[in-house]
Design a binder for these strands. Structure first.
Lengths: 166, 166, 166, 166
DNA sequence: TATGAATGAGTATTCATTCAT
DNA sequence: TATGAATGAATACTCATTCAT
């Protein structure tokens, strides 16, 4: 991992206690940023559809601009150390709760139909992550370029939320 | 990996050239099975909604019953060798095409609104994979158990397909 | 450590779970041997003095003939992993108890004066180990060659046991 | 090691050329102190037994009060750099010679029986070091606390010196 | 055909040492 | 003189792969 950062081994361990500590930090910062983003979004009072689209766009921006980071996080997410797993869970739940708030707003004004905002939030996050995973893994020959994927997914998510099937 | 399959190391290398070859085989078989499943589904002429739900259910059955395999594949999916990457891409495209056929059927009868069935198919597969990833990674403390995730995702996918945003 | 044994890294880990496991094994075998030696000695009924001398001689034989092993054990003894520490303690206590039995025999026939055989046994073992440490560390230019050290220490130990100071 | 001394790394290397130099200095000072202690002891003309007991007590005081230092020195003693080994040897020989002088005094007045005072001195030092090693390594669950070890060893050493085996 | 002992490149981590400020 | 960020050799351990039986 030191090589990946173009830093000498010792330098890494001068700043971090362990690999786990590094990941915790990176992860913590990204998730704090994302949380702030979600809270701002809600506060600014854009239309619900715009909010949903912004969230998807933000998610894909991470992949577009910081591919290595995204890859790293996904890999650790699959095989976390025990300490890290707890952290990941907690962070994810916080993000989901922020998204759930937005969904509750939508329910309150009758735009969204759902009985379980938290679960729907998790499903949406999951869907975004999944599509990201696809895009990350696809490499050069990807069917859908990142931007198109974001656009398509936004529509998909928004529609899924708005109108319950009969 | 040999231990996981309860076979001796030597035996594995007697039948397979390398780890990559093993993954290729496993993956190929699973994807062939899934493709068959999708084609059967379409041929049997169930309602579109039932088809979508069956697809999601089938996806989650894989996770529920062969968790180790699913984890392994996901990990390799993140960091494939060049040869494997091409294969994964090809397989995925085939599956997506099958799903796209079902979506086209829906468009033909006016139940589904979409301009790009292939892209939507990829988004759906991506969403399913992402949610699976969530469930796989979550371990014990998972918010949504596998079954609930499948049910929720089905509804979500179906709704997303059916009703165009205003 | 693999290099020290002239074996490839992988081979070592094929046979042992960890460094700790290796040390546990080596240590266990040596201590079992020593324990057997002490029990045989007592059973054979040689004079007490002969027994004490034999013990010292046996101790130095280890150093003379298996210097690397002795060094390794001493190093780990100074900085054991938690699991190993417990083991070392237990093994040492067993050896000390065997020696204490011999000392109790001496007390019974009036040849040895002591109120606390176990503590004396530990002191004797400690003295032997300490002198070994000296010899091990001394390298080439050692003042006392191994054999002379053994002889001198035997006399010292035996005298120390026999006659209480006024 | 710098952390242990509550000094900055740079400062340490400002005053010392290397780790070896630090150890040489610490060791040199401790040994000079001990040598002074032994010479004083002899000059003060206490009884021989009192001298022996004082030596053992002094040795254990080092361990009791500067455990970290003692541990460090022992570790280096097992694996010294070539330069350090020579130094250690020299220092030890000097200390042993001081102790040998005391033993010679005892021989002169008929209280001690020995043909080789230098070798006996080395054996005594060795025994003290060995028992220290025990105490250092034992950690919490030690059989003999430091004070008891010192007392017991004193008696042992003194008796060993005084009375020749039959 | 089947086995598992042997291998060594790769990874996380420690620690003595250097050097620009 | 004093600092601590940067370095890299060394160590414990993992894992895909080879090969003699």
């Amino acid at each position: 991992m030191a090589r990946a950062a173009r830093v000498s081994i010792g330098t890494v361990y001068h700043y971090f206690r362990s690999k786990e500590a590094i990941l915790e930090r990176i992860l913590g910062e990204e998730m704090a940023r994302r949380r702030g983003f979600l809270e701002d979004l809600r506060r600014h009072g854009a239309s619900l559809e715009a909010q949903i689209r912004a969230i998807a766009e933000d998610h894909f921006a991470l992949i577009r601009e910081r591919k290595h980071l995204a890859r790293l996080l996904l890999r650790e997410w699959l095989d976390p150390t025990p300490g890290l797993r707890v952290n990941l869970q907690k962070i994810h739940d916080e993000i989901a709760e922020c998204l759930a708030q937005i969904i509750r707003d939508g329910i309150a004004v009758g735009q969204i139909q759902s009985r379980d905002p938290v679960l729907v939030a998790h499903a949406m996050l999951g869907a975004m992550e999944a599509v990201s995973l696809r895009v990350l893994a696809a490499g050069k020959g990807a069917l859908c370029p990142v931007d198109k994927a974001a656009e398509e997914l936004s529509t998909f998510l928004w529609t899924g939320l708005c109108q319950p099937s009969s």
